[in-house]
Structure formats: structure tokens, C-alpha cells
Simulated assay, not measured.
Amino acid sequence: MRRFGHILLAATGLSVCAMALAVDYRVETLAEGLEHPWSLAFLPGDGMLVTERAGRLRLIEADGALREAPIAGVPEVFVGGQAGLFEVALAPDHADSGLVYLSYACGTLAANTTCLDRARLDGQRLVERETLFRAVPDKQGRSHYGGRLTFLPDDTLVLGLGDGFDYREQAQNPANHLGSLVRLNLDGSVPDDNPFVDDSEARAELYSIGHRNIQGIVFDTTRSELLIHEHGPRGGDELNRIIPGANYGWPLVTHGVDYTGARVTPFTELPGFESPLLHWTPSIAPSGMTLYDGKAFPEWRGDLFVSALVARQVHRLIREDGEIVGQEALFTELGERIRDVRTGPDGALYLLTDSAKGRVLRVVPPSPP
């Protein structure tokens, strides 16, 4: 099966044209029958864990078979709207410790937030589970939790959070966690060098503020830079390079407008706020991100891949010397909302489709003739 992407430059703030080489690929269905899968993690020795937003953690065997019974011991999850079970991530020492991290919506409709737990995977169940972090304050509603996380080389992790939708002004308030990126030690404690740790009026966990709803996080080890993307309202989805302690402007600065069509703010940039590397206007609803470093597709090495819900595609962000020079829309033939994109240990790209009958897809080179 041969598919061609197309270049997208017009509404993203990119001014440099780039020609993408057409790459042949084949899309396989690895597993199906998942209810709104949200995240996946590759287990040592093949197989993977997949979260379902409905609050279940599932095991896919090395041969692609979906284990019928969910993993036991998952925390109680608040489910509804955008709320549910989010990220599953293996601890850096998982092969020895068996530890996994789970982010999820916790609480009730009247009072809920984003939580982060750690537990040990013991066969078909989680044991020794503990809550490492609970974002404050609790809020009403069922929207904008963030939930993505990644590990940094210094034995810390970062967790992206949302603004709670109806609480967007609080993204500028360092006294809470709404609309922020937080950085934690692997045991949930606060790193001594966090940028707000000595500010008595700020939460010590904060790493950056002024975000709307963080949905993708990648650490580029080659360039030692942390990249995130976040949802805008109608337009103004952003890709940002994170500077510790920086303010990314929401809702005082945005390229998007409100869902009513009203302006959120007249400003797309202001002194003191970091501008995005690029923005998507109109919105694509970015949902996951990976830095491709596999061997299966050498033409893609070093590029970022951003899955999208509304756009029903994956954007390949073409990079030269770490700078984004163009975009290519891929997998549009699927016609599916794509919740996540990952680089597998086999060099394939893995996609999660956001559906009540969701699938895990594997993108591989075409079969030899």
C-alpha cells in the first residue's frame, strides 16, 4: 500500500517551504476492540500496555492478542467527557523494578482534578500503588486535564496539565496547578532546582505556566530540549519549546478565538510571554507526539509526529538542524481520529484510534514485491 502525504504550510506560521519525500508504508491492525484507547507503553520483551479512557488498563500480547481481562489494581477513575484514564508510562528502570506510572482524572463531577500514581506491575495486576501527585485545586466539569508525561535524563518527570476549561484565567496564577507543566522526582517529591521552588506564592512543582491543555510531550535527547503541544480553542493549537519558569501566555495571548467566535484576547504576542514554535489555525486538535528515531523509515528520522483528533491525520513536522521547516499530513486515508502516536522498539509507528471501537495500528514499510 502506497500513500502520499501533502505539505501544509499556510496557517502554521512557517515561512520556509520544504519538499517531503514520498515514503511508502503499510498500515496493519495490531489490536482492536478497545474503548477510546488513550496511551500505550511498550513492555520489555514485546507486548504493550494500553489505557482505555473508560478506566481500564489492557495488555496486548507479543503476538498482538488483546488479553480479555483488564489489569487489576487500577485506581478509581472519574470518567465522563474528557475525564478518564490517561497515560501509562514505564519507569526508566522498569525492567528491574516493574514500576509503571498512570495519570488519570480523580474525584467527582463536583470536585475533580488530575492525579498521578505509581505501582508495580505483577503479572496481571498492579500492586503497591501510591498516589504521587494530585493537582490543586479540585474543580467542577469534565474537561482539560492534560495527562501526558515523559521522563527526563536527570531522573525527574514532567506532567502536562489543563486549565479546566472554565478556569482559564487561573493558568496565569502560579498559586495553583491549572494550565501548567509540573516537574517531579520519580517518587513524587519536588526537585530542588525547580524554577518556582523558592517562591512562597507559587506551587513548587511548577515548571512552566500559561498553558491551555497540554496533550503531547517529547524530550529530544540529541538537542536536550523539551517540546510540548497544547490545544487552543478554535485555532491556536501550539507547539512550544519549554524554558523552565517561562510563561506561555494563555489566555492573555493566543492565535485562536473562543468557541462562540468571540476573541479571547486581541493579542497574539506580548512581552514576557513565550511565543510558540508554530501554531495550527484552524485547529487540528493535537493529541499525542513522538520523535521518530527508528530504522524502519530512515527518511523520517529526527522528525516529530503529531497525532490529531479533529484533523483525523498525523502531522509529520519536518526538521532541519532541529528547526521545523515544513509539515506533511499522513494517514488521512484512515479517516480516523488519532489519539496517540508512538515510535515502537521495532522502528514502526504505532497509532491509537479514538473510537468506541478503537484500534492499535502499526505503520511498517511495504512488503517486498
Rank of each mutant, 00 (worst) to 15 (best):
residue 168 R to L: 07
residue 269 E to D: 04
residue 317 L to V: 14
residue 135 A to T: 11
residue 240 N to R: 13
residue 368 P to A: 07
residue 46 D to W: 14
residue 262 A to L: 09
residue 354 D to M: 05
residue 21 L to S: 15
residue 312 R to C: 01
residue 182 V to N: 01
residue 2 R to F: 08
residue 63 D to Q: 01
residue 64 G to E: 08
residue 155 D to V: 01
residue 110 A to R: 12
residue 236 G to V: 05
residue 140 Q to W: 08
residue 77 V to P: 05
residue 310 V to I: 09
residue 245 G to K: 02
residue 358 G to P: 14
residue 140 Q to C: 05
residue 25 Y to G: 07
residue 188 G to D: 03
residue 91 A to S: 15
residue 212 R to L: 10
residue 169 E to G: 04
residue 223 R to P: 03
residue 79 V to L: 07
residue 220 D to G: 08
residue 37 P to L: 02
residue 263 R to T: 02
residue 351 L to N: 11
residue 32 E to M: 03
residue 221 T to S: 09
residue 203 R to V: 10
residue 369 P to T: 02
residue 254 T to K: 01
residue 52 E to S: 05
residue 207 Y to R: 03
residue 335 G to M: 12
residue 1 M to F: 04
residue 300 W to M: 02
residue 56 R to H: 12
residue 46 D to Y: 10
residue 210 G to S: 13
residue 199 D to C: 04
residue 65 A to H: 14
residue 175 A to F: 09
residue 358 G to Y: 13
residue 132 L to D: 00
residue 125 R to A: 10
residue 197 V to P: 09
residue 270 L to R: 15
residue 16 V to K: 14
residue 170 Q to H: 06
residue 14 L to Q: 11
residue 325 V to Q: 12
residue 139 K to T: 10
residue 265 T to M: 02
residue 6 H to Q: 02
residue 42 F to L: 08
residue 172 Q to F: 11
residue 280 W to T: 04
residue 28 E to A: 06
residue 197 V to R: 15
residue 329 A to D: 11
residue 323 E to S: 12
residue 320 E to W: 13
residue 260 T to C: 03
residue 87 E to F: 02
residue 317 L to Y: 06
residue 42 F to K: 07
residue 363 V to P: 08
residue 27 V to N: 00
residue 296 A to R: 10
residue 161 L to Y: 06
residue 236 G to F: 10
